[in-house]
Design a protein around this nucleic acid. Sequence first.
DNA 1: GATTGACTCGTACGACGTACGATTTAATCG
DNA 2: CGATTAAATCGTACGTCGTACGAGTCAATC
Lengths: 232, 232
Amino acid sequence: MTAKRSGAQGKRSQRTSVSPQSGQEPRSEPPLSLERIVATAVELLDAEGIDGLKMRRLADRLGAGAMSLYWHVDNKEEVFDLALDSVLEYREPPQIAESQGWRGDVVHMLEDWRASMLRHPWSASLLPRRALGSNILSRLELLSRTLSAAGVKDADLNVAIWSLWNYVMGATITRASFDLSDDDRAAAQQRLTRLSEHYPTIERSRLLLDNDWDGAFRKGLDFLLDGLAPRQ
Amino acid sequence: MTAKRSGAQGKRSQRTSVSPQSGQEPRSEPPLSLERIVATAVELLDAEGIDGLKMRRLADRLGAGAMSLYWHVDNKEEVFDLALDSVLEYREPPQIAESQGWRGDVVHMLEDWRASMLRHPWSASLLPRRALGSNILSRLELLSRTLSAAGVKDADLNVAIWSLWNYVMGATITRASFDLSDDDRAAAQQRLTRLSEHYPTIERSRLLLDNDWDGAFRKGLDFLLDGLAPRQ
DNA sequence: GATTGACTCGTACGACGTACGATTTAATCG
DNA sequence: CGATTAAATCGTACGTCGTACGAGTCAATC
């Protein structure tokens, strides 16, 4: 019951020294910072997956001692939170085309969302247990604004947003889980064919071998948008 | 590269002794078995969440030594796999109404699916990294068969199945993540109102406070089914 | 009575997250 | 300038976890 909130004592008050000394030893590493920690955590996660992220290894990559991380971060969970949020940042498209209408905008936003996560498959498995970070909220806000401007009534807005968000989440997680480990995938496929007597229909439709994930994603999304589109 | 597959040496060849002796000591616990292990793991997961499942604690609950589990199970991961699969078993409805048509059947199957997982919120966070277990495949098979019988063409079947599956997955995971920890939820809500300047639209629509998850789920599902329904 | 195979479990090891406190460094103030 | 303080680093150590290993128990079989 003790209110322990402190957000790690980290105050970004960088040591503003210009350069400690120019007697250049192989002092290769720049000083620690939240930014470097998060960026390196993402690298490590990309390279080794969720189980590959250990505080000691992360510190090694940063050329620091393990415990040094804890000045910048409360605990390992926070590293996960920050890495996830960092990966979900939305880079506004450089306004190439003004806009292809709200529907094109929405499709673009959601496809970008999915692509961002698939670039870092660990993010999909991290999402379920986390609270909504600021970058997710930003994306939800932008989505809301677009739909609202398109004419979706406030009463329908929440259904629209959650439907789209849930669909994207589900599609991404499913897709990502098929990327992880060819072993698992091969095993699943083998189990499927071995037990094809039990699962004749999905065996016949080659469900697990159909690789047109992007197309399927897009089609289902279109169905949702058809239903959500404001009636005129 | 060493093919280590052995599936744990577990052979269900129960010691068929009738009853060791009737001199009744408080020998409370029945012998270990995969079934008991899995059932107890589910209990423990329900009570303590994912992080609460430790091999020693599981063994304690079973009145056994920690290492005894390893005769029945290869490792902790397998416990997770089995617990998840056990929770996803589909209990065919007792044929109350013959059938309200394919669409009612599909809705019923998917709502049951979602409900099964929400009864055990840890299952949602477990899913992303696992291969498809047999109970999931059974449900996919049943879904496929229903849709196919309803007239969905083979060429459209995979899109239909994945769209529905992904939607259910996403909705369930989102919903479950809002169940976990009132703290997180309150924190998210607080962050949202505090930053309402940044997220005016979702703040206005009370996105995070809208508790009609079931209704939203159903509506989005209807939109998908509208799109997927075979054209006549 | 000896052997075997199913099953249990105590001990121990290595890996991990991280509490604690000492230490180093740089900014500030007299 | 030296003293003080705050920012940042990190070595050591502790507790917990998964689980390897091998000894132990017990019933069925020969």
